[in-house]
Simulated scan of single mutants.
Amino acid sequence: MPPRRDLTCTRRGLGWCAMSKVALVQPIGEPGVRMLREAGHDVVAFDNPLSASELKDTLKSTPDVEGMIVKNAAINREVIESAPRLKVIARHGVGLDRIDLTAAAENGVVVTHTPEANCISVAEHALTLILALSRNLITWDRAVRDSDFEVRKSQPGRELSGKTLGILGMGKSGRTLAQMALHGLRMRVVAYTPHPDPAKCPGVKLIPDWREVLGIADYVSLHMPLTPETEGLIGRTELELMQPGAFLINCSRGQIVKEKELIEVLMAGRIGGAGLDVFEEEPPQEGNPLLQMENVILTPHGAAHTHEALERMAEQAARSVIDVLSGLPPTWPAPLPPPAP
């Protein structure tokens, strides 16, 4: 019997596509699963969550896996080398800090991600945190539930129109947030990016020194990947460059901010507050002072978790697997790791 016909491959002139086994290390949306099956692939779902050690053992017992889709699982060298037929790892999301890109490259494994899938959701989430902080939304909600209707007089909010938003990292989510703030709220937007391209950032004032952004902005939103260069980038010294009363928003990675020093700066009243979707340790442990702070809004690393973004991530991850297993270059390849010194 010939292998199941892959309609996508046929449209691209590839004729018949051999079936490959694709492992879902963590569950993905049904549209992505359906795409893989319609392309003729055998989809297997692993137990969730798996540690790197458990995943390595599972792959050793499933040696014919050629494609893998992961969310936030740690994919280290041992995991990669435990799957001898592996050709592609598709990240269901944007950040690549939990995948060993060097080991993948050395073993001939293509790594992809979905940078265009969740930029709207992440930008909207950052904006939600900005709005909630500026209008004391959580505090007002609690006060009304406690029959304190006069909180509006003791804790008035702030308008965003005319205020300055500083963005560190002008990838897709940063650029999307900038346009929302410029055109939706009439804010001034200043930003830092290591690869400035004014054509991609209309209306945004690009600043060559990211520390200067901290001193200008009423709201600072982080949109940079976690790399050796950005880990621990924002600590007490940097936070104290911010204007008194300014707010920090982090929807990127918790390890970019030195959390203990952020807590100290918040407790000292040096900045106005923070909106945090990510943490150094996730979930934050009981007793973490952030959990008790009235001027901090916390969300569960869910900025990208909307129905629409999850569907797009599933589809784009599946599309990448199908393309690589069909011999096509992926649309969203991960950046190649830097060469060894």
Rank of each mutant, 00 (worst) to 15 (best):
V79F: 00
M242N: 03
L168Q: 15
D6L: 02
R186W: 05
I263A: 03
G215D: 05
V257W: 06
G93P: 10
N76E: 01
P244C: 13
A73I: 02
G245F: 08
V94G: 14
L127C: 13
M19R: 00
D197V: 09
V88D: 06
N118D: 12
N288R: 02
A105W: 02
D100S: 02
I263D: 11
H301M: 02
A23S: 05
H183N: 11
L7M: 10
E286V: 15
L266A: 10
K56M: 04
A274C: 12
V278Y: 08
S154D: 02
T331S: 12
S221Y: 00
V189Y: 14
G171A: 02
A104D: 10
L137Q: 01
H195N: 12
H41W: 00
R12T: 07
R319D: 10
C9I: 04
L266E: 01
V22F: 03
G235K: 03
K71T: 05
L291T: 06
A39P: 08
A105R: 12
A199V: 06
L7V: 11
L160W: 00
G269Y: 09
P283T: 04
L59R: 01
K163F: 07
G235E: 02
P333M: 14
P84I: 15
G157Q: 03
D42W: 04
N107P: 12
E261Y: 04
V265G: 05
Q285E: 12
V110K: 01
W210Q: 02
G235L: 09
R152A: 08
V109G: 13
K87C: 05
S82D: 04
P202G: 03
A314I: 01
L298G: 07
L14P: 06
P49A: 12
V204L: 14
H92K: 03
S326G: 15
S173M: 13
K153C: 02
I120P: 08
H125G: 15
A23L: 15
P329Q: 09
R12G: 15
E116V: 10
Q255Y: 04
V79A: 11
P196S: 06
G302E: 08
Q285D: 05
L101F: 07
P2C: 05
G67H: 07
T8N: 00
H183M: 06
E159W: 02
R37Y: 11
M170Y: 10
I216V: 15
G40Q: 08
K258Q: 12
R319G: 08
T139I: 11
G269W: 08
Y192W: 14
G302Y: 01
G95C: 13
E30W: 06
S161P: 01
S154I: 01
L222I: 15
L336P: 06
D148L: 01
I207W: 04
L310W: 07
M68Y: 07
A304W: 01
L336V: 04
N72Q: 04
K172D: 06
I271M: 12
D42T: 07
G93N: 11
P194W: 00
A274Q: 05
N118T: 14
I138A: 11
R98G: 03
W16R: 13
P300T: 07
E281I: 14
M170T: 10
L248C: 14
R98Q: 11
E124I: 13
H125L: 11
E238K: 09
V88L: 13
